[in-house]
Amino acid sequence: MTTPHPAPPRPATRAVLADTIELRNVSRWYGNVVAVNDITMTIGPGVTGLLGPNGAGKSTILHMIAGFLAPSRGELTVAGRPSWRNPRVYEGLGLVPERDSVYAFLTGEQFVQSTARLHRLPDPDAAARRAIDVTEMADAAGRKISTYSKGMRQRIKVAAALVHDPRILLLDEPFNGMDPRQRLHMMDLLAKLGAEGRAILFSSHILEEVERVASTIQVMVAGRLAASGDFREIRRLMTSRPHVFSLRTSDDRRLAAALMGRPDVAAVELTGKGLSVRTTDYGAFTRQIAVLARAEGIRLRELQPTDESLESVFGYLIGASSNAS
């Protein structure tokens, strides 16, 4: 699972290649700034989440896969073909870009039909109807896109990306700006498309979104692939990492001595403003700290986790991945 990223085996047949994205030692830099650093990954059928904080390199990866950026180094293929300067790769690929700019003067139906015609489909109107049905946009398809909500725009973009029935679908931050209901709808749609055997790759910086819909994840941090594989394994790694809490109490020194006797506490530091406690078991510590304080006759004034940001979670994963390799 996680950690080192051994070179994945090369798919053997065209049938397998049709729904496979492969990156081999791909890097992308802008001048002296490295945006993506030596990434090797294979994306196959099913839903894959590309997870990472803002600035991690997710969009750069998606843009390279979509053929809108050239890798500075490495090899990148979509369905067995390089995507850079190769529009024909879109015969089997659909893209839902993050930017909300669509042809707002067209109706949803006209937009999807236009896309079908650009793909030279034999029956563009039927293909458009099918894609609109899949995204449940039939009721609004006759309205101009300029009147759509953010969620509806996102869905009509998905309909356009699906109109030629691609085996691979890329979505850049598809849940951004959506309300909870729209978000659930999009998650269901992606899960359904993945269950049909398509390769669905979407980027997100929100752990819960990825958890809900992706069976496989690729975690990006600072341009590097920090972890990749089965989501549950990575989730377990994330929850078993050390957590740091800051505490303010009526007697910091006495509580520090008591905490040191607990097996789930790795380190305690008197900071001057209170205590800093590092625990290896988030659940046990948060359940037991109040009990312990009461038993010692100490009043807890403040208890808060200090490293719950995504960056710290991802930073930990990077450390775990380097240690394991």
Binding site: A66, F68, P87, R88, V89, Y90, E91, L93, G94, L95, P97, R99, S101, V102, Y103, F111, T115, L118, H119, R120, K157, A160, A161
Partner: peptide, 15 residues
Amino acid sequence: DDGSIIHLLATPVRR
């Protein structure tokens, strides 16, 4: 400028 060109270029149409 507004990015809508992506929808056109994300198709097999020759440049």
